[in-house]
Simulated scan of single mutants.
Amino acid sequence: MKLKYIGDSFFEGLTDGQFYEGKDVNIFCVALIDDTGKEKIYSRLTPGPFAGRSLGRFEIA
């Protein structure tokens, strides 16, 4: 599924307005290749840095 990240950009993670190809993991998480070029798992509802606060959201494109 094609996802658009909307929110604060963060280092080695996601960029505001960028489209990512996501894969279902479960009802809470999605896996995608982020700006580092590595596949990582992010929350579907409140994506953000692993050790930080929630910064954004995904829209299905």
Rank of each mutant, 00 (worst) to 15 (best):
S54A: 14
F28Y: 09
Y42N: 06
E39P: 08
F58W: 11
Y5A: 05
F10A: 09
A31W: 03
I6Q: 11
M1L: 06
E39A: 01
S43L: 06
I6F: 15
T15A: 15
G13S: 07
V25P: 05
N26L: 05
K4E: 08
F11S: 12
F10G: 00
T46W: 13
K2L: 11
E12K: 08
D34L: 08
V25F: 03
K23A: 13
G13K: 09
G13W: 02
S9K: 10
Q18T: 10
F10T: 09
F19W: 07
V30H: 05
F50D: 13
R57W: 07
D34M: 10
Y20V: 07
T46M: 14
D8F: 11
T15I: 08
E59D: 12
S9C: 01
L55S: 07
S43P: 14
S54K: 13
E21G: 00
G37H: 08
E39D: 12
E12M: 13
G37D: 10
F19D: 03
Y20E: 09
D16H: 15
I27E: 15
Y42F: 06
S43G: 08
A61W: 00
E59F: 04
N26F: 10
K23N: 01
K38G: 03
K23H: 06
M1K: 14
M1V: 12
S9I: 12
M1N: 10
Q18S: 12
T36F: 07
K4P: 04
F11E: 11
G22R: 00
R44H: 03
L14A: 03
K4Y: 02
L14R: 00
A31G: 02
Y20N: 02
R44P: 10
